[in-house]
């Protein structure tokens, strides 16, 4: 009799079990996570320190970006006489990036150096975790930027034709979010220009950029980028000594704003200037402080009442 009761209770338990599973499995079978769009920001911002990241603007979002590079911290132009470079503005930049779609960004900006106006198109070709099966391993973004030097020529021969004022920067950017905290990026590029310092300095300047992010907390990251430009197709023994740009910084995100506090040897901000023209080195006090303030505006409000946010 004992046997029968144990068997019965076992049978009941079994049936109960199967029953409980059905509620769970029903729910599981209904929740299809594969259909949900990937959201995998590899970088917080569309820029790292000096260079562009693979991120693009969200659709209909406008980003206003103000960047500042101060003067040399040490050396001939630095030290206490310029409050370690803070008296000097080696370059200033204001720019607007607008997301036409989630993948395509259009931008316009202006730098103090060379009175350079720049415009770029940036297109996110592939997204990590995207695709039909969600198995794309990397992000790929294409960048095409045009620069226009608007300043008066320093010498009458500086711009023999008007075309000498234009530079074109082309860059495919590859990145991968390795872990939740670490992202890495590689970006080969070519800068097409007419004006060079001497005959050996190539008009089509090839460079390769390396960048990375380490998230320290959810909202604070350490970022760095390095661009190898001297010694690829530009000889390193030019009359004018050029250096490879290296920037390190802290990136702080506070909702709609991103603040970056950076140190770099490059005087200039736009790719069309800092890649060919970095004349300062991290040695000999050529490093400087710089900051970026980025503010995002959502231009078109949703018509869905359940989503409408309100700022008082």
């Amino acid at each position: 009799m004992l046997k029968i009761s144990t068997l019965l209770s076992f049978a009941l338990l079994l049936s109960g079990n199967i029953y409980a599973q059905s509620a769970d499995s029903l729910l599981k079978s209904m929740t299809d996570t594969a259909k949900i769009k990937v959201l995998n920001p590899t970088f917080k911002s569309t820029r790292i320190v000096l260079s562009q990241s693979t991120e693009t603007q969200k659709k209909h979002d406008l980003d206003m970006r103000i960047r500042h590079h101060f003067g040399d911290i040490g050396g001939e132009f630095g030290s206490a006489h310029t409050l370690y470079g803070l008296d000097v503005a080696s370059d200033l930049f204001i720019g607007f990036d607008y997301g036409i779609t989630d993948k395509l960004t259009i931008s316009i900006g202006r730098s103090k150096h060379d009175e350079l106006y720049n415009g770029f198109l940036k297109y996110k070709l592939l997204e990590q975790g995207g695709g039909k099966y969600g198995n794309i391993p990397i992000n790929v973004t294409l960048l095409a930027q045009m620069g226009w030097i608007a300043r008066e020529p320093f010498t009458t021969t500086e711009f023999p034709t008007y075309a000498n004022r234009f530079t074109y920067f082309l860059q495919p950017i590859f990145s991968r979010k390795i872990t939740q905290r670490i992202s890495l990026q590689v970006a080969p590029s070519v800068l097409l220009r007419k004006n060079t310092t001497e005959a050996q300095d190539p008009e089509s300047l090839i460079s390769i950029g390396f960048a990375g992010r380490v998230k320290l907390t959810k909202r604070l990251s350490f970022v760095a980028d390095y661009t190898l430009v001297n010694g690829i197709n530009r000889p390193i023994d030019l009359v004018q000594k050029f250096y490879n740009p290296l920037g390190v910084g802290l990136e702080i995100e506070t909702g709609g704003h991103v603040f970056s506090l950076n140190f770099m040897n490059s005087e200039y901000i736009s790719e069309n200037s800092f890649i060919p023209d970095t004349k300062k080195s991290w040695k000999h006090g050529g490093v400087r402080f710089g900051f970026t303030i980025s503010r995002n505006f959502t231009l078109f409000k949703s018509k869905d009442k359940d989503l409408q946010s309100k700022i008082y």
Partner: peptide, 10 residues
């Protein structure tokens, strides 16, 4: 879904 996609990301 949020009105601001950046908010959604955050």
């Amino acid at each position: 879904e949020f009105e601001k996609k950046l908010m959604q990301e955050h």
